[in-house]
């Protein structure tokens, strides 16, 4: 439809983030459900998850969810309004504007927590 330009990037990133989120969802549900087998099992899994590398991965998951959610709203606008397709490029820039608006404060909250566990600050 709009090959090689913003629209195609929006589509590709939507798929990529979707696959990443689905993969995390499957692991996350099994991991949280493991609490059924008691505190020992749970704590052993959390010990892994609270390592800096997993915390950084989680920040990536948050970014993927935020992009997928905002671009999903853009897709809905394109599907159900008369002007959505015409303004799809502007809407995509709007997606990134809102993404930054939510993600930067989240980073300011979460990154110091991770750095503290690493003993950097």
């Amino acid at each position: 439809m709009y090959r090689g330009r913003e629209g195609q990037w929006a589509f590709f990133l939507h798929r990529l983030s979707g696959i990443a989120i689905l993969l995390y969802l499957l692991i996350h549900v099994l991991n949280i459900s493991a609490a059924m087998w008691g505190p020992e099992v749970s704590e052993r899994l959390f010990a892994i998850e609270h390592t800096p590398i997993f915390r950084i991965g989680l920040v990536g998951v948050i970014a993927a969810v935020l992009y997928h959610a905002l671009n999903g709203l853009r897709v809905i606008l394109m599907d159900f309004t008369a002007w959505g397709v015409r303004l799809q490029r502007e809407l995509w820039y709007g997606v990134w504007l809102l993404f930054a608006l939510f993600f930067v404060p989240a980073l300011i909250k979460i990154v110091p927590e991770i750095l503290r566990t690493m003993g950097v600050i």
Binding site: F46, R55, L58, V65, I110, T117
Partner: peptide, 19 residues
Amino acid sequence: VLGHLYMANILINAGDVDY
């Protein structure tokens, strides 16, 4: 999902989540 992420990452420290 955004509500879930807000509760698990912003209202608390996700690194403090335990059994």
